[in-house]
């Protein structure tokens, strides 16, 4: 009996000793990170911009692997199957852990993941063409109210936050507008430029060039704060709506990854996004907002938006699970 207790104590002591040892040593080999989108997009370039700084902090290479598909679900389902040893994590956009699991059956449960941190969030602008007769969102809404079912807006896909945010607005104002899904933000912008839809809600990067050359007219910022690109365009909140569109990029570990590894990657991300270089590149060239959330805040934000977006999904009839 006594021997057992001694043995147990020893084991425990050894185990406790091993834990901090893991924290001190980790990482001892390269860390693999999945990127849930194809190479060459805003997210991809952002992630590749911060990777060298993360490597500098971790002292080991970070291998980025692009696993596109199913709005990021392919990357997360691969992550779900990976070893939770702290050497594989995935970048994920907020919809992949909030809306997509509510729209279709997936092989992972987003509640199980270990949320590491979120380095930035995206910004969204609601545009019409420069020669459109509306100069404010109110005028646009008034027109849409008079012409139910005849006003269409472009989105990068059904069930994306871009679609849901406009759907929320339409519901709130009692408008009947047609959401038209295009293959990605650039195509949705092109449809506005060509006059095939009246408006679009797009992330900033896709619209920068067309906006700067005067082909698009911003009516409202759908994200929380005004953005440097269009400093004079008011946000939805300033117009009196109690709503803004939110989606962020974050990093997650597979279920069961030790806290020590999570902490280390969180710190690496924090280190990377506090670099002046990164901040400058993100804001001036990629048009996204650096907004660091640690693991706890990120998890809370995720839970909060799981409900918010879920509610809107239900209103538009896309919620299945």
């Amino acid at each position: 009996m006594r021997k057992t207790i001694v043995a147990l104590t020893l084991c425990l002591a050894l185990g406790l000793a091993a834990l901090p040892a893991m924290a001190a040593d980790y990482p001892t080999k390269p860390v693999t990170a999945f990127v849930p989108l194809a190479a060459g997009g805003t997210t991809d370039v952002f992630v590749r911009t911060i990777a060298p700084y993360m490597e500098q902090y971790l002292g080991k290479p970070v291998t980025l692997i692009n696993k596109a598909g199913s709005g990021g679900a392919v990357a997360l389902s691969a992550l779900n199957k990976a070893d939770p040893d702290g050497y594989t994590f995935s970048w994920a956009n907020l919809p992949t852990v909030t809306t997509i699991p509510q729209m279709r059956k997936l092989t992972y449960n987003p509640d199980d993941f270990v949320y590491i941190a979120s380095p930035m969030h995206y910004d969204y602008i609601f545009y019409v063409r420069n020669d459109a007769p509306w100069d404010s969102l109110d005028a646009f809404i008034a027109y849409a109210r008079e012409n139910p079912g005849r006003v269409s807006y472009g989105t990068p896909g059904l069930g994306t936050t871009n679609h849901l945010a406009v759907a929320w607005l339409a519901n709130k104002e009692g408008l009947k507008m047609v959401p038209v899904p295009f293959k990605g933000n650039p195509k949705s912008v092109a449809a506005v430029l060509g006059g095939h839809v009246q408006a679009c809600n797009t992330s900033t990067t896709a619209s920068v060039s067309s906006y700067k050359s005067g082909k698009l007219k911003p009516l409202a910022i759908f994200s929380a704060k005004r953005i440097p690109l269009t400093p004079d365009t008011p946000t939805l909140q300033e117009m009196g709506y109690d709503f803004f569109q939110y989606s962020c990029l974050g990093a997650v570990f597979p279920p069961g990854t030790p806290e020590a590894a999570r902490k280390k990657i969180e710190e690496a991300i924090r280190f990377a996004v506090s670099q002046p270089d990164v901040i400058k590149k993100a804001e001036e060239e990629l048009y996204v907002s650096i907004d660091f959330l640690d693991g706890k805040a990120y998890r809370e934000r995720r839970d909060q938006y799981y409900k918010i977006w879920g509610g809107i999904l239900e209103e538009v009839g896309l919620k299945k699970f």
């Binding site: 060459g40 805003t42 370039v45 590749r48 990067t205 920068v208 060039s209 067309s210 700067k212 050359s213 082909k215 590149k281 001036e284 060239e285 990629l286």
Partner: peptide, 10 residues
């Protein structure tokens, strides 16, 4: 984009 330019009319 990596080079800090966004292609387009601008």
């Amino acid at each position: 984009m990596i080079q800090g330019m966004i292609p387009g009319p601008m």
